[in-house]
Design a protein around this nucleic acid. Structure first.
Length: 110
DNA sequence: ATTCTGACGTGGG
DNA sequence: CCCCACGCCAGAA
């Protein structure tokens, strides 16, 4: 966690600031950090965030609002359940009204 | 060292 | 609508 660790740290920092009932995308975070083309690394960071209970990884989805990472959670639909418990409507692994619940770090966190 | 894959995104056919 | 290729970078085989 020294050189590249900084990147992960930034991702966590942003992820932690995602408010209740809101979601964001990997690309949005990556872009906010200045590594727009490394959106994959954001997802990788989430994978590593498994140790950090403070990281609401379930609130991070892809730009389609699709729960692409649901298979990485313990349960099969744990991610969906968590989001639904926050008032987010999901259908077929896809967030409904995604635009409304989307939390943009640029707009909100600027 | 080399190759592939991956919780992504964008662009082109 | 579907399929493909590229960029990006970290980790596993």
């Amino acid at each position: 966690m020294e050189t590249s660790g900084n990147f992960f740290e930034k991702v966590y920092k942003v992820a932690k600031q995602i408010p209740f009932g809101r979601v964001t995308s990997y690309g949005a975070i990556a872009r906010y950090l200045g590594t727009a083309k490394s959106a994959r690394m954001v997802g990788w960071a989430m994978n590593a965030s498994h140790n950090n209970a403070d990281i609401p990884a379930h609130r991070v989805v892809n730009r389609n609002g699709l729960l692409t990472g649901k298979f990485h959670f313990d349960g099969t639909n744990l991610m969906q359940q968590l989001l639904e418990s926050e008032g987010i409507v999901i259908k077929e692994n896809q967030i409904q009204n995604f635009q409304a619940v989307f939390w943009d770090p640029f707009k909100e966190l600027l």
